[in-house]
Design a protein around this nucleic acid. Structure first.
Lengths: 215, 215
DNA sequence: ACCTGAACACCGTTCAAGT
DNA sequence: ACCTGAACACCGTTCAAGT
């Protein structure tokens, strides 16, 4: 587990990048703690303050890593524009659900990193190419971002580390009172699947159609 | 600040309700802590465990209170269906932005309380009355919920206790590099207003149109 | 320049004890 | 039945000190 140090130097050679690397492996439901990351690196907690001003800085770096890991290049290429948005959105959803606590992190701090800017610009370009006026493209971009992050966070809270089908099964077992909640009871097979990937894709289609209709 | 005790009895007469009451006044950026609520009630932290199993239970109770405070009756009445959805959505947004840390809380635990069920049922009824098939109404309901919670949480993180216009002004001062991010730079007056109520209303309209189009 | 020891002011939670 | 004291295992962060 220990890398061979490249140069003799001090015991370990730390850096902000290596700290964020370590933190990326420590999602377990909470976002990685300063003390947890330090322990993982075999170092005292306060050591990290040589490289990071505070915990918020660590979290902002993690947000950017997560956005990048979903591969913003999926927004490029010559597939249809809806398909490209859907591909990146699903990839990001996958990344956020794959690391417990990651989704909540995206809602914690403003996304002002370089990858966020890149993703925003590419979504804008897609909507402009699709025929939206630039200002409407900007608004549409926000709608997509909100939906992806919002649904990923709700879904992550619901999954809580379990598999999608386990959660659906659990929800299907719930009996809604058909007297007080007739429609909820009647549509329960759909409601029980709210936090699934097919609902996610359905929502995205609706969003994109709605946005395109504003052209 | 101290209420006169109604009956002599013990020093204070606590209850889950009174604990949640107290917690509702303690939103300050984090969701209220067990220790903070106990201090506010003039009691030791572990006292609360007589009434609540754990912190998660406190948070679930708070979620339900917040949903109720936005007044689900706004979803009833004889206004147009889009208007009713928009009214409740804006009211909920207001409640969540009015208490710092409230928005993030809604994303923390699954919303399984009575008010959540009531809001869900009424949204379903609205979409069915608007002509959607029940299953599509269920999916549309989820789209609306995700959007309201998602945008409120992003906005709350951005506001961080400040006023809407202060944030817009701050963002307007940012200079995006027009070479790398031409569309972002060109639409900055809109992007800077992403977390405002007018963007919120625009998004909702797009959503509802998209959902209605799926009828 | 880089890391640590010790401390401070916090958390949620448990358990045995008091009244 | 209701509340507390004391403790446990955690947090983020600061600051003076060591190498």
């Amino acid at each position: 587990m220990e890398e061979k140090p490249q140069r003799p130097g001090p015991k370990r050679s730390l850096s902000a990048t290596r700290i964020v690397d370590a933190a990326m492996e420590l999602f377990d439901g909470e976002s990685p703690s300063i003390r947890g990351v330090a322990a993982h690196l075999g170092v005292r907690p306060n050591t990290l303050y040589t490289y990071l001003p505070d915990r918020a800085a660590l979290e902002r770096a993690l947000v950017d890593r997560l956005l990048a890991e979903a591969d913003p290049d999926l927004l490029l290429g010559r597939k249809g524009w809806r398909k490209r948005v859907e591909d990146y959105a699903c990839a990001l959803r996958g990344v956020l659900l794959g690391r417990r606590g990651a989704a909540a992190l995206l809602h914690t701090a403003p996304m002002d990193g370089p990858t966020a800017a890149l993703v925003g610009e590419r979504l804008l370009a897609i909507f402009v190419a699709a025929g939206l006026a630039p200002d409407d493209a900007a608004r549409a971009t926000y709608v997509v971002i909100v939906h992806v992050l919002g649904s990923a966070t709700l879904t992550a809270a619901d999954l809580n580390g379990r598999g999608e089908e386990a959660v659906v099964a659990e929800r299907m077992a719930i009996q809604m009172d058909a007297q007080y909640f007739p429609l909820t009871a009647a549509t329960w097979p759909v409601v029980a699947r709210w936090n699934t990937e097919d609902q996610f894709r359905w929502s995205l289609q609706v969003l994109l159609v709605g946005c395109a209709g504003s052209a």
